[in-house]
Computed example of a mutant assay.
Amino acid sequence: MPRLDPLTWDEIDPEIRQPMRDGAAMMGFMPNDALTMARNPALLQATWQLVAATLGRDRPDSRVDGALKRLIGLAASRSAGCDYCQAHTVFSALKQGVDRDKIRALDTFEDSPAFSPAEKAAIRVAGKSAQAPNGVTDADFTALKQHFSDDDITDIVAVIALFGFLNRWNSTLLSDIEAEPTACMLSL
């Protein structure tokens, strides 16, 4: 049971209905966290912009593609213990073409041949950064720099930071997980 009820469509400020439609079209469903965040239209709009800038724009020269961004978000969300964001990142990862077996292997990524050394370095930093206090070491960052440019690392940390916000939002408010991401989690 959520701690705050999401707004109904009729309760949403008409000025933010189009961004809500755009977000729902991108995700494939209307997310409950956005329906709750719509209580503060400026916050919702800023969050959509951050999501689009962080997850929606892959640079052609980047080694951090949409699939890896979802795995980074999933690793951070697992470390933070946010069920809502875990379900959403699994759903998004599958839409990005990430293999189900790879998602299943995320908990044992260090020993899994399914992950490249670059993916392992990024996922390691994502998981450790979501700990309190932050568990990322200089050695973890050195390993990351062996595989990624400074611009790529900026993208990686942006995904981690975005999910830090979303993890806190959703786990504090106990956002209800929608049917589509729930079905994806159950299918693993």
Rank of each mutant, 00 (worst) to 15 (best):
C82N: 06
A179P: 04
A183P: 12
A24Y: 00
I160M: 07
A42K: 10
V51H: 01
D111R: 15
I12N: 08
P41N: 00
N167F: 00
A122I: 02
Q18M: 13
G56S: 01
H88W: 13
R21D: 10
G66F: 03
H147M: 00
R63F: 02
D138W: 08
D176N: 10
V90F: 06
G81H: 02
L106H: 03
P31N: 01
T36A: 12
D99F: 06
A114N: 09
A118K: 01
M27S: 06
L144Q: 08
S112Q: 12
I12T: 11
P19W: 08
V159S: 04
A183Y: 14
P2C: 00
R3M: 10
E119C: 07
D176G: 08
A132H: 12
M27Q: 06
A46Q: 12
F91C: 02
V90H: 11
Y84S: 01
D140F: 03
F163E: 03
R39L: 04
R21L: 12
L44E: 05
S129P: 05
D58E: 08
S129K: 09
R3Q: 07
L4F: 14
D5E: 15
L44F: 10
Q96R: 09
M1R: 12
Q146L: 04
D61P: 00
L55A: 05
M37Y: 07
L74M: 09
H88I: 06
E178A: 13
Q86A: 09
F141D: 07
F109E: 14
G56W: 02
D152M: 00
R70I: 01
A105W: 14
